[in-house]
Amino acid sequence: MIGVPEIICHQVEKRYRNKRVLHSLTCSINKGKLSGLIGRNGAGKSTLLKLLAGHLKPTNGEITVFGECPFNNLKTASNIMFVEEGMTFPPLFTVLDIFKMAKDFYPNWQHELAKRLLDYANIPTNAFHHNLSKGQKSTFNLIYGLASRCTISLLDEPMNGMDESIRTDMYRAILKEYIAYPRTIIISSHHLNEMEHLLEEIILIDNGQIKLHASLDDVQQMLVRLRGDINLIRKLTSDMEVFFEKEDLFHYEVVVERNKIDEKLLQTMNILVQPVTASEVCKFMTSKGKGGIDDVFK
C-alpha cells in the first residue's frame, strides 16, 4: 500500500482565457494518504483538484489517475468523489432523496452513517438542498462525500461557512472515517493550522506551482525562529537563507532552516531557538518579502 503513486501530474499547465493558473506543475500523490493542499487564495488549489477530478482538461501536460486520464473517464469517475461548494444536486430533492440517490450510485455508500451525521448536524432529512444555509450546505456536502467512501476523495475547502464547533467535529469525522476505511484524501484549505494534526503530507501550491511537498513532521520541523542579539544572529546566519526577519526596539528575530543551525551552540550564546508552525512555514515560503505585512508600512 505504501509508496504506490495513484495520482501523477507531469508538467501540467492550465489556462483560462490567456490567464495561466497552473504551469509546470509536477507532483505525485501516493495511495492512501491523507494530504493537505495548502495555498493562498488564487494559488490554484481548486483548479488542480478539478483537473484531478476530471472536471477540467489540462491545457498542456499530463494527468494520470489510476494510470488513466481522468477527463470524461468512467473508471475514474466511479472512484473519485469531489466535494466542493458548487456541487449540484437535482433541484427540489430533499437531503434524504439525495442520500437515496447516492445509495444507487455508490457501491460503498454508508446510508446509516450519513443519516446519523446529518442528525448530529441538526439538518432535517426533509430539508430541501437548495434551502440549506451556506454552513449547512458545506456540512451536507462533506457528509455526502465521506459517506460515499470513494477511493479518492478530493475536498475543496470543505469547511467554508461552517461555524467553529461543527468544524472541529467535521475534522474529527474525516479522521474517523479515514481510520475506519482508509482511502486517499486530499483536503484543500488556506487554514492549515485548523487541520494540520490530521495530515500525513502537505502539498504547498503557490502561483500555480508546487513549492513544497513533504511529510507533516518534516514541515513542522523545517524552520526555526532565532531571537536574540542582532549582530550575533546576523553573523551566524550570513550564509543561510532567511525566510523572515523582524527588528524592533527590544528584539531581533529571523527564521531560518533548522538543519543549518546548531541548537546547543546557540543556546550557549543566549539565542532563543523557537519552533515554527507548519502554517507559518507555508506562509514564509509563499510570501513576497522577508518582513511580512510590516514591509508595507515601512
Binding site: L34, R172, L175, I179, H197, L199, E200, S215, D217
Partner: peptide
C-alpha cells in the same frame, strides 16, 4: 497506530512513526 490516532486526534502515519 489507528488507536493512537483516534486517541490523540492525529494522523495514523504519524502515530505509526
Amino acid at each position: 497506530q489507528y488507536q493512537l490516532a483516534e486517541m490523540f486526534n492525529i494522523n495514523p502515519a504519524t502515530a505509526g512513526k
